[in-house]
């Protein structure tokens, strides 16, 4: 409980306005203060940890990518047709997976937060499940279904449908691995916002789609975007699952992370780091957007909490 200093009216009569100065926020409490030597050594250690584990590797990626100059870097990225294809493939697979997970995430969050039905908790657990499954195992599962020796393998071959070692499998596993992100982000947001506004919209005569687009979507947009960003980052970087189902056919089924590995295996370090630097830049952009969105979602949740608090 912060020590409150509330506004005092001119006559000294207390008014019940929110605190204008909060002691605990602007001034550390004496009993929480650590001695300076401890403070500085802990801050130093924390900076060293982040520096060694995170900053040095990131700088190193760019350093090694640009070691032979920007000209070579550009050539490494664009000169190799297999690398070009891997970039194209990643930018094809990721949006499809993310879009699928957005539709699923919104539907799942709607069902879970707006209705009560048996098996609701089980459903929530099922949504989390892909996080607990090793990507390699995920890839294996789809191979067992669609691979040559898989359960649907012979039937698919008969009908000349290629799933394993082809684009559909890449999309399937990427979607699987990133399945929880959007739903997990939306469920708490929609839970907090509650259904009052939606019920009001329906009672005013809106149909389902009108309610969804005019009330639900504006309320959850930042949380949704946040989920999309996380989902996108993971999809972009997915390696293990894609590795298992891709068959590593250069120029056909290699995504960017797989390309990084292949170039690395071929001892083409500059090429490998060039692709890695592109992925790292995307990660840094993701972080930046994430910070902005975090602030927005927190605001969304706070706004949702306020009217409840006043009743």
């Amino acid at each position: 409980m912060p020590t409150e200093i509330e506004q005092v009216t001119m006559h000294g009569v207390p008014s019940h306005l929110p605190p204008v100065v909060s002691v605990s926020k602007t001034h550390g409490r004496a009993a929480q203060q650590d001695p300076a030597w401890l403070r500085y050594s802990l801050i130093g250690t924390a900076m060293a940890i982040i520096g060694l584990l995170i900053i040095v590797p990131v700088v190193s990626v760019f350093y090694q990518a640009f070691a032979a100059g920007p000209g070579v870097y550009w050539k490494n990225l664009t000169g190799d047709s297999d690398t070009r294809h891997s970039i194209y493939l990643t930018f094809l697979v990721v949006p499809v997976s993310v879009a699928a997970n957005v539709v699923f995430g919104v539907a799942a969050a709607w069902a879970i937060t707006r209705f009560r039905f048996p098996g609701r908790t089980l459903l929530t657990t099922l949504i989390d499940l892909p996080f607990a499954i090793s990507p390699v195992v995920a890839g294996l599962m789809f191979l067992l279904l669609f691979g040559m020796q898989g359960y649907f393998g012979p039937w698919l071959r008969e009908h000349h449908i290629k799933i394993a070692f082809a684009l559909p499998a890449l999309i399937l596993v990427t979607t699987f691995v990133t399945l929880p992100f959007v739903a997990r982000e939306l469920i708490p947001v929609m839970e907090a916002i509650g259904s009052d506004e939606e019920i009001a919209a329906i009672s005013l005569g809106a149909n389902g789609w009108q309610m969804f687009w005019r009330v639900t979507v504006p309320n959850i947009k930042w949380g949704l975007l946040y989920g999309v960003i996380l989902c996108n980052a993971r999809a972009m970087g997915e390696f293990g699952a894609v590795y298992v189902v891709s068959g590593h056919i250069a120029g056909q089924t290699d995504t960017m992370p797989l390309r990084v590995e292949k170039l690395f295996q071929e001892y083409n370090n500059p090429g490998s780091f060039a692709v890695a630097s592109l992925l790292t830049s995307l990660a840094l952009v993701t972080l930046f957007i994430k910070i902005v969105l975090e602030r927005k979602t927190q605001q969304e949740l706070k706004e949702a909490a306020e009217p409840q608090a006043s009743t």
Partner: peptide, 11 residues
Amino acid sequence: PSGSGKTTLLR
């Protein structure tokens, strides 16, 4: 009243 300094004095 709140803001009169009583809690600060106690602390």
